[in-house]
């Protein structure tokens, strides 16, 4: 699973969101690191819909336009949980190895 797909699924976890709502939430969740462009968002979103991880929730009128809201499917929730577990397991392995090799935090060069 790519990082944008991971964050898009995470953004849809608590509530259905529309396109720009997903972009804003992903930026917030990733602390500004993942700034999705609209072309990139829909490039990921269309695949998530085709794969059955995300589906259309509803359409709402907003300023004379129809906003489409998307929601996570049960399959999407499982896929996200599996990916989060995989990433957490990887992080645990790296943290354990780091603690083993560098028991104390490295604070900078030793004073001369």
């Amino acid at each position: 699973m790519t990082e944008p797909a991971f964050f898009i699924l995470t953004a849809l976890l608590d509530a259905p969101r529309h396109g720009y709502g997903i972009v804003s939430d992903v930026a917030e969740l990733s602390r500004g690191r993942v700034q999705l462009k609209i072309g990139s968002l829909y490039g990921v979103l269309d695949r998530l819909v085709v794969d059955g991880l995300v589906e259309l929730d509803r359409e709402e009128a907003w300023q004379g336009r129809l906003r489409r809201y998307y929601r996570l499917t049960e399959r999407g929730r499982h896929a996200l949980a599996a990916e989060a577990e995989r990433l957490a397991a990887n992080a645990r392995i790296a943290s354990a190895r780091l603690r083993e090799l560098h028991p104390r935090p490295i604070t900078g060069p030793a004073p001369s």
Binding site: G19, V23, G39, R65, R68
Partner: peptide
């Protein structure tokens, strides 16, 4: 065929951005 499915939604998201 892709535009038929996604164009209006992309435009709405872009204008909002």
């Amino acid at each position: 065929d892709y535009r038929r499915e996604w164009e209006d939604d992309m435009v709405a998201a872009f204008l909002e951005s």
